[in-house]
Nucleic acid binder design. Structure first.
Lengths: 346, 346
DNA sequence: TTGAAAGCGCTAACAC
DNA sequence: GTGTTAGCGCTTTCAA
């Protein structure tokens, strides 16, 4: 046969109508089909190695077995892990996953989301946070409405101002935990390198840090960078200008790597002179030197949970709480140690 | 309006036929449409914020504006970079990209490719190499035939036994270059940690290494690992058992990181005692300590080239050579230095 | 339990 | 330059 077999070929071979063939082949059709007929149809389909045409089916059912995941940067291990978890979970359920990496350019992200709208994907997972900026917010809300309008679902894996169903890591608790860990080691000038203030993830982690600092009777001190290794390395200079910290908490492991690199360049030893901690527990940290103390975020599980949530929404049985928080865990390695200096009295 | 606007809504508003509306809105239609008419149609479409339904269009044109990229592991920086380059290039041309990460399990990869076949994506890019194993090869060839059958294109970004159009990094030249670099530093016991023998990328890099060794009158010595950090770290033991190398060339940066980690654990200094070099130049290496000497593979460009190639094939104007080789470049950093020992005479 | 027929929304012959 | 018409391959009323 020159062309690929279509349903009518199967029907003809099985000597049944198109309708019956369709019903016999659809595993979750509730319409009754006699066993004899079904067997004949299945046999014919197998013989012809028939595969339903997904475009035709999608046109009819108004649903494509494809979801999308929007990330800030696929090359960032944090997002790469989430993507890994999400694509694997989706494929198990028969869904393909489109990956959109904005490379941290809001306009690019918006363009991607527009493409996703037009392609009518079943759902969109936003792995990164959104900008807190009128134009962005407005445009994004428009797209979200349009996705909802055609029956698509949306899930967020990072805190956002849009009120979408979300699966989030416990950023505050995690930041509190590392900070308390540092305090317990005798540190008293603990600085934080955070990400852009426009990202809620930054703010949540700052909040947890500030809270723990206050509880310990210490003064918070925050410097901002941009979630990249290089940006964090540069921020170290500003950080040292703000007094000499005994410990540095970076809002992400990627940034912590930049801090480590810069401190080494400056000849400052970690952890004997300064302790450094990160957040996320991206893969490979145990092979670094010094191995980074951090907070483990279940990235792959988060991606998988996002997919599960999306599919539940699509099936209309997502009656659970709107925001699901995933617990995080302190992972102590070599980059944090007892403070060299002693906290002055008072 | 309750439902999304469709082409006939636009046609009615613009007071033209469905056909004319379709033609007026199609930017690359060669059918003539008067400017006045086109303006009216475009105005109507804008007013209704009309978006063509991709499923209907796909059903008709038998083509989805979606491609796929199959990788061994999205979390591996090498593949992550390729994916970044590919998705960006695809989106510029209006294509969405499905990412399939097999997590180095051949069966998973095969399942993905089957899904891709059924979904009739326009093309598939294989970023990783294939297994040299009868069942895998046979099944994959079947899928490839079926993709070709419905008019889809295929491109490989790693050497494979299947004869597909390919965009490849110059693995041999790169391996030769690092090896020569090591030789020029006075090293004479240069060991290589390679990947699985079933992957052609391993073999090509081994070939370049062996060639340069022979030219220098040195004996090649290869130990195998599995392209992961942990695997390479374990391989170091076997490597040291094979005599004490003055330099180690790892077939990928990821593995080089494992070597570095293990040597540090063993208290062997790099580069004063042993030099280490990698391959790929994954991002962030300049922030490591010691910064890794490696061979730069233009990963993102490779991804973009793959997309360009795929699209050219789809347009039927890929008359170029079947395999396009991309040049690589030696990047000398801190992990390689002059050999401590001197080559014995003879 | 089966089948006929009507689309899903679009594009592409083919006429005018 | 424009319109009529016939599908693309499938699902799903509705009727038997």
């Amino acid at each position: 046969m020159r062309r690929l077999p279509i349903l009518s070929d199967v029907a003809r071979q099985a000597e049944v109508s198109l309708t019956t063939a369709s019903r016999a082949l659809d595993p979750d059709s509730d319409h009754p089909v006699s066993e004899r007929t079904r067997a004949r149809v299945v046999a014919a389909a197998t013989r012809l190695s028939y595969r339903p045409n997904p475009m035709a089916r999608a046109l009819r059912t108004r649903r494509v077995p494809t979801i999308a995941i929007v990330v800030h940067d696929v090359s960032d291990p944090y997002f790469a892990e989430i993507v890994r978890g999400a694509t694997a979970a989706a494929s198990v359920r028969g869904f393909l996953t489109v990956v959109c990496s904005s490379d941290r350019v809001p306009a690019t992200e918006l363009r991607y989301v527009e493409m996703l709208c037009e392609s009518r994907v079943s759902g969109v997972i936003f792995a990164g946070g959104g900008l807190e900026e009128p134009h962005y917010h407005h445009t994004m809300s428009g797209y979200a409405r349009s996705i909802a309008h055609y029956g698509g679902a949306i899930v967020a894996l990072a805190p956002r101002s849009e009120r979408w169903p979300a699966e989030l890591p416990d950023n505050r608790a995690g930041a509190r935990m590392v900070t308390e860990h540092l305090v317990s080691l005798g540190h008293f000038r603990i600085a934080m390198i955070s990400g852009p203030a426009t990202l809620r993830t930054s703010r949540e982690r700052e909040f947890g840090y500030a809270q723990a600092m206050k509880t310990a009777g210490l003064e918070p001190s925050i410097v901002r960078a941009d979630f990249t290794v290089g940006g964090a390395a540069q921020a170290v200079t500003r950080l040292l200008a703000n007094g000499s910290p005994t410990a540095v908490f970076a809002a992400t492991d990627t940034m912590a790597l930049g801090v480590l690199s810069e401190l080494r360049r400056l000849g400052i030893d970690v952890p004997t002179e300064v302790s450094v901690a990160g957040f996320d527990d991206i893969p490979g940290l145990e092979f670094m030197h010094p191995a980074l103390t951090t907070v483990r975020v279940p990235m792959a599980e988060l991606g998988a949970a996002g997919v599960a949530r999306l599919l539940r929404q699509l099936d209309g049985d997502d009656t659970a709480t709107r925001t699901q928080i995933h617990p995080v865990e302190l992972v102590v390695r070599e980059s944090t140690g007892r403070a060299a200096a002693v906290r002055p009295a008072g």
